[in-house]
Each structure stands twice: as C-alpha cells, then as structure tokens.
Design a protein around this nucleic acid. Structure first.
Lengths: 125, 125
DNA sequence: CTCACATTTGATCAATTGTTCATATGAATA
DNA sequence: TATTCATATGAACAATTGATCAAATGTGAG
C-alpha cells in the first residue's frame, strides 16, 4: 500500500498534484476519442431533458405530428419543433410528410433500448 | 387517409389545434410516470456532459482518486469533486476511503452498458 | 391567386449549468 | 498539537439552455 507522489508539469505553471501517474496515463490511453466522447455526451444530453424524453418515449409507440406532441407535453408547437429539430440532427427521430402535416417517428431502435436500460438502473435501488 | 380535426379546450383559453386526439390520449396513457420521467432525464443529463462522461468511462476501467481525475480531464480538483458529488447522488459512482484519499469507482454496471449501447448508435451512420 | 393551416425559424429572456476561486473539513504524520 | 495533503463546499460568474412570441415557410383547397 505504498503511495507514490508524482508532481507533473502542465503547461507553464505547475499546480497539479497527481498521485497515480500510471492510472492517469492508462485512463488517457483507454479514453474515447475526444470527438466521439463529445458526440456521445451530446446524445445523452439530448435524452436528458424531460420533455424530449417524453417525446421520444411517445414516438416509440406510434408516430405523431407536431401539434399532437405539443398538446401531449403541454408546450407550444414552436417549442416542440425546436426540440424535434435537435433530435432530428442526432438521428434520433425522422419524419414523413403527409400533406401539410409532418409525422415524426423514432429513427433508431437503440433509443428504446437506452431508455429501458436506464429504467432498470433507476428501479434497482 | 381522412384527417380529423379536433379542437381541444385547455384551461381557459383555447389555442390548441390538436389533430389526433386519440393519439394524444394514448400517449398520455402509456407515458412514464412524471416522477420517473424526471429521474430518467436527470440520469441521462448526468451522462450528457463531456467531462462527466470521461470520468465515468475512466472509472469503468479502474478506480481513481479525485486528483487523478482532475489531472486526467484537465480541470480543477474542485470541479471534479463537484461532478463526482452529482454522480454519487445518482448512484452512478461510489467511493472508498483509504487514509485521506477517496477512490471512486462505478457504482452500477448499467453505466457501461448505456455508454456502449449509445456508442453503437453513433457508429451506425 | 388567395386563404387557412402545420410547421419552422429567429430573437429574446429567464433559468440552469459548469467552472474557478477561496475557504473549510478531515485524516495522517511529525 | 501543528502541519500537510486530499477532498469538499459555497459564492460568483460566464456560457448554455429551453421556453415563448412574432414572423416566415410551405402545403393544399377553393
């Protein structure tokens, strides 16, 4: 149980006290690529809003149009549109036009799996 | 393909044009309980920050202490501590004290599964 | 073409977030 | 006990977010 203290220089000023240099190195080595980590975070963040989550869960059952969704979660149609735009950008939802109305649906089965997996986590305590 | 237009009164003012009342009702019926939806969103949001995600992914490999993590992701130890507090509150990480240093580890295997599932989504496009 | 409707877009604003700094706690050692 | 180190906490602040409103698209019907 020896603890080795290593001071690492970073940039110009050294202020960092780093206990386990080996672990830090290993962490860097196994870390996700920065870009991938960023995209992953964006994905989770997208699912991390109550209203967006409600939308996704609802679309998991059947496709709905913007004003249905607005009515469902109780916000402006504009608000829903903004959210859907974001979800679309992440390939979480897709739409289909029928006349003037756009029907939105889930674009990816992973979404349901992600939600259900997370639910397991919640319910296990 | 008939489209039925239904206007629904909500509260005092009616401004909502709702196309498929049945779908809205069904959505409400199958929706997650409000409280559960909220907690779920909080969970995803917690994973929706690049630095927290880096922390979780690193801890998935081996336990690390606060200053290791600070060094690893390049922020203040204070910042890491704040994040860990949040993750601990959600039962995503747990710690173990050894003298003055706290070793953090993942508290739940679901976390790894969630990340890997989300990675699948990313890599499929 | 004109009108009505579904949706989108852009501006705006309050609320939340993530970080840092300064300071406090708590454990081990001299 | 005094000191040092690891971590936690609280205040402060810039940056981001999610909502709304107002106005612009774009579609189909008359």
């Amino acid at each position: 149980m020896k603890k080795e203290r290593t001071v690492i220089l970073q940039g110009e000023q050294c202020r960092c006290r780093c206990i386990h240099r080996d672990r830090v190195d290993a962490a860097h080595e196994h870390a996700l690529a920065s870009r991938e980590n960023e995209k992953l975070a964006t994905l989770f963040k997208a699912m991390g809003d109550p209203n967006r989550l409600r939308i996704l869960w609802a679309l998991n059952r059947e496709e709905m149009c913007v004003c249905d969704l607005a009515q469902f979660i109780g916000v402006t149609e504009s608000a829903v549109s903004h959210q859907l735009r974001q979800l679309r950008g992440l390939h979480l939802v897709a739409n289909r036009r029928e006349g003037p109305v756009l029907y939105y649906r889930l674009d990816d089965d992973h979404v349901r799996d992600l939600i259900e997996l997370a639910l397991e986590h919640l319910r296990e305590e």
